[in-house]
Design a protein around this nucleic acid. Sequence first.
DNA 1: CGGTGAGTTGATGTTCGTCAAACCGTGTGG
DNA 2: CCACACGGTTTGACGAACATCAACTCACCG
Lengths: 248, 248
Amino acid sequence: MLNIEEISSPLEPLFQRLRLRDRLSEAEHLALAGAMGGTLVVTEGDEVVEEGDVPSHSLLLVDGLAARYRVLPNGSRQISAFQVAGDFVDLPSFTLKVIDHSITAISTCRFITFPHKELAKIVEDYPHLTRLLWMTTLLDSAVQREWLIGVGRRSSIQRAAHLFCELGLRLDVVHKGQPEHFGFPATQADLADALGISLVHSNRVIQSLRVMGLLEWRRGEIVVPDVSALHRFADFDPTYLHLDHHPR
Amino acid sequence: MLNIEEISSPLEPLFQRLRLRDRLSEAEHLALAGAMGGTLVVTEGDEVVEEGDVPSHSLLLVDGLAARYRVLPNGSRQISAFQVAGDFVDLPSFTLKVIDHSITAISTCRFITFPHKELAKIVEDYPHLTRLLWMTTLLDSAVQREWLIGVGRRSSIQRAAHLFCELGLRLDVVHKGQPEHFGFPATQADLADALGISLVHSNRVIQSLRVMGLLEWRRGEIVVPDVSALHRFADFDPTYLHLDHHPR
DNA sequence: CGGTGAGTTGATGTTCGTCAAACCGTGTGG
DNA sequence: CCACACGGTTTGACGAACATCAACTCACCG
């Protein structure tokens, strides 16, 4: 007899992410565990997938920080998402086939591969689990939409504050950090590309947050002295993270 | 015996959108037709769904132009997507449950409702069709990601040009326009909110495109005199629209 | 001890927002 | 038929947010 606790440990972040939103049956736990392929480790700074790839498997991030991005012809880079443990960084390729953006490892990342063939079996046999996997892609999409709203209509300082509110909560869900203290192994250049501002400006934004007492950031660690103050400053409303439990 | 042509006419835009990307069997055509609920007409300027709604059905837009948006506490509005015929404006609510953004009718819109109960049946019985519906939500997400990249890293003029390249192609897919000529019943204020700029600036951007000979826009009609010139100016690469045919 | 990547600072210019006013076609009521 | 209101568009003047260029510091590492 398989023991969920034993086989599932690398999948725990995904399970936590799913179980926060809905019940996950034992059979569904096992189905996911059974669909696992191998492990993939990508060292800091390397590419995980590149624009134009047509992967035969999807990647679940189980440890580390990754970034989805595109580089424009003029050389500038825009990061469209940070991915943390429990995020299926590559699930869109299951139905979209061709990857339309690249993914890089901000810190060294550990992934679990899920062959598309195995995912297709889940779609055949586990309709509820299928909806949950579908949901995870829509969660990513909701976060991305919030970023779009921020880049379009929030000041760069608010946007930075908003990002740190978001990351704190998302890491909390998968027990990889807390809203008041979590790892963020990115550089100020990475942050600039995520916020859609220049490197110099990103430095000044961080300094502003520091002097306002809203943020500390040293050696890859973020400390938020007063979480609710940061939330207020950022006009942060976590609705878009869909942290609530529903039958889906 | 049901005749596809007869029952499917309001679904044609969706079928075209799907068939461009993959084969759609007769059974799948019928399954979609069978999942249809009623028709919903929303007049210009009215809300289709509002933030916080928990709908029991999803909405397929079959005619008109709609916009997904959020209003921030400071009163500014950001449009995160334009929806055209064939777009499932509301499919995320099938698994996300709570709507985290509002949708407004830019022009009068006609929708077909799909009860979530019926969609759940499709997930039970039609795995391939399920993947295609899943895909449509990821297509929306890919478009949204491209907008994020544009707002973050493109100039507002390029962004506007890029938008008109995109809309021309998307409308072409569902036979509601061509890249060189299509309806765009929005105001300059709507455009401003989509591009993340002010109304005044949106006016100046349009004028620039006009004097460059890249665009004409009168009475809700866009004319692109030289499509490839506009594409070149916008650095437009349609990869992200996933217009290619694949087994999925 | 030199090199390198990350962070920081200052000076200057551009893009874009805001405020304010005018314009223009369309529709409406006297 | 005309006066007027109204939404959408257009224009000008000014200021704020942000980019760019350039230089410097600091920690770390071979």
